[in-house]
Nucleic acid binder design. Structure first.
Lengths: 343, 343
DNA sequence: ATTGAGTTTTTACGCGAGTAAAGTTTTATT
DNA sequence: AATAAAACTTTACTCGCGTAAAAACTCAAT
């Protein structure tokens, strides 16, 4: 290696025969320099593998190329899946995504927002905890940083919301279940942390009313994010005490349903749509594992790709267009019914 | 708010009545200043919520307080769980963890290492992809940055390895299964991406030999990280063609087993240790979902906490002690047999 | 060749903090 | 109280790059 060691942008500028300010401009936006200049810089880039110091870069830029991604619970494969798609989109658009999980803890969510603030991100994609979120903190944060909420909508927070249409989820499952068999009861946590759960309950009532059926909610106890275990315990109790008002059960989400099915199996309750079965179980989310439950779970699927893509697009538009007008667009994607064996 | 607006460390130093260099020292290590000084700074910290600019901080520090965490596939709850514990430990120790997932792609793993390099992290906890990893890239990286490998061991890479003792996993399950019923065959992917899989196969052979039993491996096709689906397809095929050499199946990992159980259910094969069952299935990992399979999965559990804690501790020791001697300690934690209903 | 718009170079300063050196004050030791 | 050690203040320089302004240059169209 006869090449001199490149220590900073000045060295690199000297080596490439271009002035430092122009090199700086190139790194900010390669298209902003003349093609011949760009070619010379990129030729030098091949020889010396110089990369500008991110810390020095971001220090003076009012807007970095960082994008924050915050989810409430990363150990939930549902979020892991969303994040995977979102990260990819950000990288492709030339941004550096930073991933954070609140791990179900409101305090941690606040800390993350603080940390993010100091990262001076161009924008943030935030899936809030929901009920546990510090709304004031999020509101203040969103005033400083372009923020798009996704998955969980908290009224009025952030510049936009992108998520799934809970009404579409529930109306499809309720209609399907009612049409093909007994009227479903609704199985949910009594105090759900996530606002989607409340929307789904309301959608259940609305749809039942529309169909002229009488709703029945089974509310189970439990707190935290261990939904499978909560669903399992709730189901065990309901089965043992025979308190289920219907042999068709619509769970609020797949993770509860996974626990429910596990309890059914344990109790020898046969689940499925065949004649010899005791019960039908359906749910919402199309959780990555729901195709491997026993029986495989009939559910309403998020359009993962659409939600992720549109959330990212919305954020990018927000970033480019500066703080948009006073409106706060909410975009909801409909569900797709996935018929499997459980109902 | 009559308080003047704090724009930088100088402003804050003035406001707290302490000189800037001392304030700087405080932020580097609060214990390095006199208790009375510390109290004054912290009092000021209450009034003005100043936080030093991370970019400016890290620009001149040779060593930042950043820690990189890299996992091969975050959508796998196993890693999500490990990460959760690791992140917490880092934060408690005053470090800023940055989380990255390779999403199963070797190219992305390399990109992540590049990104990480420019973050000047104090250290990195890396769970490599395994077979797909660019060993040269990792080796070069580990020369510059204190790196502790975890979960997947790649011989000679990194300054240390912390993981689970695959031999302990397999010997316990094989012994248990052999002792209580038919000799297990070993169900695995033909070309596993992860080195643990190979270790487990070897451990199976070794244990069977020690017990004077003849080993039987069922190798199934499939690539990628969708282990459940691969396991399911492999099991469907094996069941349909009746090629399983034993009615007791030991899966290489829980995700394969989840697919296997799903196939059994679909085919009406009863799994469990009771007399009326057709088959026993066991596995390794104690995946977060394995208690909710039908039947619940008998498996060998990682000591999640021990692995996470010790990996973090090892990294911190490495960071504090500078580059250690030439040895590369490998720490393996034994498994704990979890007897559930599947075997 | 001339013109002028668009680029690049030169020069210079700023950002927010790390850090080193020398001098001053505080605290601990005896 | 004398003394030394530890901590703090002052001063000043560094780091790597953003960015502004003016001068010099390129290049295509006239």
């Amino acid at each position: 290696m006869s090449e001199t060691k490149i220590r900073n942008m000045q060295d690199f500028a000297d080596a490439s025969g271009i002035s430092r300010p122009t090199v700086s401009k190139y790194f900010h936006d390669p298209d902003s320099v003349r093609p011949t200049t760009r070619a010379r810089i990129e030729a030098a880039l091949e020889r010396y593998d110089y990369r500008p110091n991110i810390f020095a870069m971001n220090q003076n830029r009012k807007l970095t190329k960082n994008v924050g991604i915050v989810v409430p619970y990363l150990a939930d494969p549902f979020f892991a899946e969303l994040v995977r798609v979102i990260e990819r989109r950000c990288i492709n658009a030339g941004f550096s995504p930073s991933l954070f999980s609140s791990h179900g803890e409101p305090a941690l969510e606040c800390d993350i927002l603080d940390t993010l603030r100091s990262l001076k991100p161009a924008g943030v994609l935030l899936a809030p905890l929901g009920r546990g979120s510090d709304k004031g903190a999020i509101e203040r944060f969103a005033r400083d940083v372009p923020t798009v909420l996704f998955d969980s909508n908290i009224e009025g927070l952030g510049a936009a919301f992108v998520g799934s249409d809970n009404f579409s989820f529930v109306s499809q499952t309720v209609e399907y279940l009612s049409r093909t068999g007994e009227t479903p009861c609704f199985f949910e946590m009594r105090n759900p942390a996530n606002p989607n759960a409340n929307k789904r309950r309301n959608a259940y009532f609305a749809t039942m009313e529309r169909l002229g059926l009488s709703p029945n909610v089974v509310a189970i106890d439990g707190t935290g994010w261990e939904f499978e275990e909560i669903g399992r315990q709730g189901a065990l109790q309901a089965i043992e005490q025979g308190t289920l008002p219907s042999s068709t059960v619509l769970c609020s989400n797949d993770r509860l349903a996974i626990g429910f099915l596990s309890a059914c199996y344990e109790k020898g309750v046969r689940v499925g749509r065949e004649a010899e079965c005791d019960m039908r179980v359906a749910s919402h989310d199309d959780h990555p594992f729901s195709r491997f439950t026993c029986p495989s779970l009939t559910t309403a699927a998020h359009d993962y790709t659409a939600v992720s893509d549109y959330a990212v697009e919305t954020l990018f538009r927000l970033i480019e267009g500066g703080r948009a007008s006073g409106d706060r667009p909410e975009t909801l994607f409909p569900a797709r019914l996935i018929m499997r064996d459980s109902a």
